[in-house]
């Protein structure tokens, strides 16, 4: 069947099998490999992308279901060479170690901040419950999301500067 999907701002039409998962479509058809597949059972969140602006787990959406919609992957989040505030904050706050969960974490966090621009720490932890990280212990991830929230609302005090 034919699907027409706007991927990272560019509309494209492809011939796919109805059973093709969105995660496989993005990786194998579009060649966008930032979206990782960790569990394939809707548990880990590594495959999180935005579908019409909201986070979804692309291992549990058919490419066919996304036809007519827009999808944003991690590759489409930055504005040219300027990182998205959530990406920049993950770098600044060391919100990753191996990096496998990171694309999904960043996409989930960006979706969370678009719905709730001023989350407290508990809300960040609860809202990221669909994303599992085996390395970091989550502390720096949470710190990065809170820092990105401050950045996006314009009141971030650089932690490095502050402690000097």
């Amino acid at each position: 069947m034919q699907v027409t999907i706007t991927v990272n701002g560019v509309e494209r039409t492809d011939e796919v099998q109805p059973r093709m998962l969105l995660a496989h479509y993005l990786r194998d058809v579009c060649g966008l490999t930032a979206t990782n597949i960790g569990c394939d059972t809707t548990s880990c969140g590594a495959c999180t992308v935005h579908l019409d602006g909201e986070s979804v787990k692309s291992c549990t959406v058919l490419a066919a279901q996304a036809s007519g919609s827009s999808v944003t992957t991690l590759e489409g989040l930055a504005d040219g060479d300027t990182l998205h505030p959530v990406q920049a904050a993950f770098r600044r706050e060391h919100g990753l170690q191996c990096g496998f969960c990171t694309p999904g974490m960043v996409m989930a966090a960006a979706s969370l901040l678009s719905q709730n621009p001023h989350p407290d720490e508990r809300e960040v932890r609860e809202e990221l419950e669909g994303n599992i990280c085996r390395c970091t212990g989550y502390h720096n991830i949470v710190r990065a999301v809170l820092s990105a929230a401050d950045e996006m609302s314009g009141d971030r005090v650089d932690a490095a500067v502050q402690t000097r």
Binding site: T42, G45, T48, L51, E54, S55, V56, K57, T60, V61, A108, S111, L112, E127, E129, G130, N131
Partner: peptide
């Protein structure tokens, strides 16, 4: 129910 991603679908 589940997590935010699941609740979006």
């Amino acid at each position: 129910v589940g997590d935010p991603q699941i609740r979006h679908r």
